[in-house]
């Protein structure tokens, strides 16, 4: 580390040697995070593409599969995630004001809400295993009387719906797990008092990630649970 003497004045300990100042460092991190989220859009985009095409092809099967999902749990989970987004947004604010205790509390709340979401998701998945709605050799689906007498439902094709259900919610849940881990680390550092009004980029960026995962779920909820609920 041989910093040129020119940039020694008011040197923030969190500033890395190759940046001219904290502002440049913050802008770089922020842009990096948004670019990462753009890659995430495309990552989930592949599954949304598959979803769109198969739903276009197999609408009756998708509707039948969607009806078996528990809409209450889905809605509760949506609410849980929205609450966690609020705690994250407030935690960024707490960091901006350098309120260490409030920051830690809000981060812990976020982690707990994330765990609640994952727990509910686990309950839903477990019931799929009991109902044999997991794609594979033991898949079994007893179609209810179809809403329109003319629509024929191929139980095999309902596997496509459930494959997408598991892939999409599974990858989303994996992102949640990563997010919870991320916030656990941040809580530790926040407890140690690393973040203050001059340096809170990690909180901000983790927050962006969490909100993004929330947005994905905001779309997954109607796409998976609400395809055909009308009586």
């Amino acid at each position: 580390m041989s910093d040129s003497p020119a940039i020694v004045e008011s040197h923030n300990p969190e500033q890395q040697h190759h940046f001219a100042d904290m502002e440049q460092q913050r802008q770089a991190s922020s842009l990096g995070m948004w670019l990462f989220l753009a890659t995430e859009v495309m990552f989930f985009g592949g599954m949304f593409c598959a979803y769109l095409i198969y739903r276009y092809w197999y609408y009756p099967e998708f509707a039948a599969g969607s009806k078996t999902l528990d809409i209450r749990l889905g809605a509760i989970n949506t609410a849980v995630l929205i609450c966690s987004s609020l705690t994250v947004a407030l935690s960024v604010r707490a960091a901006q004001f350098g309120k260490r205790k409030l920051l830690v509390t809000l981060l812990v709340a976020t982690i707990l809400l994330g765990l609640v979401f994952l727990g509910i998701k686990g309950v839903e998945w477990a019931s799929k295993f009991e109902e044999h709605h997991v794609p594979g050799y033991s898949f079994h689906f007893e179609p209810q009387a179809p809403s329109h007498p003319n629509t024929k439902i191929d139980p095999q094709r309902i596997q496509i719906f459930f494959s997408l259900y598991f892939a999409m919610t599974g990858i989303h849940a994996l992102h949640m797990v990563i997010g919870v881990g991320l916030f656990a680390v941040l809580t530790f550092y926040a407890w140690k008092g690393r973040y203050n009004s001059a340096y809170y980029t990690p909180i901000e960026n983790a927050g962006l990630y969490w909100h993004f995962v929330d947005i994905i779920w905001i779309y997954l909820f109607p796409l998976l649970y609400l395809i055909d609920r009308k009586k």
């Binding site: 859009v41 987004s85 947004a89 927050g207 905001i218």
Partner: peptide, 27 residues
Amino acid sequence: VLLFFMHLKYTSEKMTSVVVISALFWL
């Protein structure tokens, strides 16, 4: 969520919205 929780409405960075728009465009 994007505008308020993720501060897109308040950011002074032009690049942020460019990134968001290109991601959606590529999707």
